[in-house]
Design a protein around this nucleic acid. Sequence first.
DNA 1: GCCACCGGTGGC
DNA 2: GCCACCGGTGGC
Length: 331
Amino acid sequence: MERDHLDLASPGKADHNDSYGSSVASRGDNMKHEPKDSRSSARAGGIGTSNQNHKDVAALAEEEEHDSDDEDNHSEDAQKQLVLYDPAAVGAGEIALDADPINSQPRRNSFPNYASRILPSVGAFTVQCANCFKWRLIPTKEKYEEIREHILEQPFYCETAHEWRAELSCDDPPDLTQDGSRLWAIDKPNIAQPPPGWERLLRIRGEGGTRFADVYYVAPSGKRLRSMVEVEKYLQEHPDYVAQGVSMSQFSFQIPRPLQDNYVKKRPYRPALPDENEPVNRITWIADNGDTDLRLGMPGPPLFEPLSQSFKKKRTPSKRMSNADAACKSS
DNA sequence: GCCACCGGTGGC
DNA sequence: GCCACCGGTGGC
């Protein structure tokens, strides 16, 4: 437990996480407030301390190179979370998590392989205190987006919540904990707030799908946009928005990452296309067919497993278009 | 016919 | 594995 806690606070480790979590509750069980849980929630929150910014891949690479001396990362241990909960449990004596009625309406999918079932939706927004690591509920989506926009430079503390909870301090028990009764997902830090009059919608997909979630932007006209390309196109067709100051930098289609491993179906192994410059007579042993059974027996909570993500090789900016570039190229 | 939701794919 | 984009389609 202690070690986990240290892991959480470990700058090196934290540095490798891009998590700012959102969490989804898959079950509507009661939340627990035991100290033990608070500990584990702190841990979970700890995973996501990266400086990664979707708009600055180069900065990310640099961070990774200096992961051993990022001493000031502790100030960025603040985590953000969206708590998604099972709508079926709404109203069953839950604490005030249904702060976002807009997204609390039951949703169902109706796809061939998904006998109509209720989809998770965002039930609450929560951010982790950078000091005590306890999760604090954020009263509204708008406030959450406001905090998230600058979470790296302006970490969240319990005192930050005085705006809506004057008495709150780190001595108070956590508002909620990662007790397995909810679906948690790690959100991305520093996502710009949507332009005034626009809404950023996060739709959680059903378990076992190919993706965890989708982000949509809803324009004041009601038009739904689902990619930077579409946003760019839309703004070109509606220059009045641009004249009002709406710009591409205010959009991000980054989705949170589920904390629950295997929520998203693993993509089947894709053999690389034969490289004509490579010898073809290598003996191949496909060890990973996407079956994760081997992991099931792993001891300890799985909360740190997503860490491996951040160790992926760096991308060179020249080879990877930024969102803005992509949008420009599409025009 | 619309659209919310999903799968698939290419790229990194 | 993650990300971005977009086509397909069942249900309304």
